[in-house]
Design a protein around this nucleic acid. Structure first.
Lengths: 117, 117
DNA sequence: AGGGGCCGTAAGGTTTTTCTTACACGGAAG
DNA sequence: CTTCCGTGTAAGAAAAACCTTACGGCCCCT
């Protein structure tokens, strides 16, 4: 559900989260979703980007836990995928970064479950 | 709380700061400098990276104001460049990002507005 | 001289990231 | 059946980031 906050996430996680946020499109996506959930096609229209592109960025954001999507069915039988932002609060200071640095494996990745499927 | 931010930086600035931090080397540099200032050659040895590489990353960090360097002369007449971190405190939440998004020019370079067409 | 410390930068190649175009699926309604 | 809505993915080009090697300079000491 959330990306950890008070306890502070590991260096690798922080690195990936920052990388995920360090992109204009993805920043906009998070910003847009912070106003309420939305489904892919509509979000693409709202943000003025192609579906495939949005899809890619959503994947990137979901991979680090910043957003989460759920497939749902409308009454009309349509399959729609809704996305919503996770609640997170990162405190970035020289000290918090120094702290994170101690659990930095570099090679990033090392994805590892933090949530169930 | 002066140099970098307090009133909240613009979307473009935030974007660049995040991009600057989203790198293992640069994260380590900030972390290392948070323990005190240091000069280039020594920092390179401490972090185990080449001088040219470190130089590049320092440039990137300095460009967004996360660190600052100053050339100094030792008693022996040696010219040494010391770097230190700026004090900053970023609060990253879906809301703060949504807010920053409103001043996001996207492909802008710390400059002025660019119209879309 | 030659060596050592420090500073910088240009050239070049590799690897990532980003983005477009094109395609495939399902269901509802004309 | 065709068209419009939604979903997803693959392939390849373009652009940006990253890193190394190699070179240039300055000053001091043996």
């Amino acid at each position: 559900m959330n990306v950890t906050n008070v306890p502070a996430l590991t260096g690798n996680e922080l690195l990936k989260v920052l990388a995920a946020l360090a992109n204009p499109h993805r920043m906009r996506i998070v910003g847009a979703l912070s106003g309420g959930r939305n489904y892919v096609s509509r979000l693409a229209r709202d943000l003025g980007m192609s579906r495939p592109l949005l899809h890619m960025h959503l994947q990137r954001l979901e991979a680090v836990g910043l957003v989460s999507g759920s497939l749902e069915e409308t009454t009309g039988g349509q399959t729609v995928k809704y996305y919503e932002v996770s609640r997170f609060a990162l405190d970035l200071t020289p000290e918090s970064i120094a702290e994170a640095t101690r659990t930095l494996t570099d090679r990033a990745e090392s994805g590892q479950g933090k949530e169930r499927e």
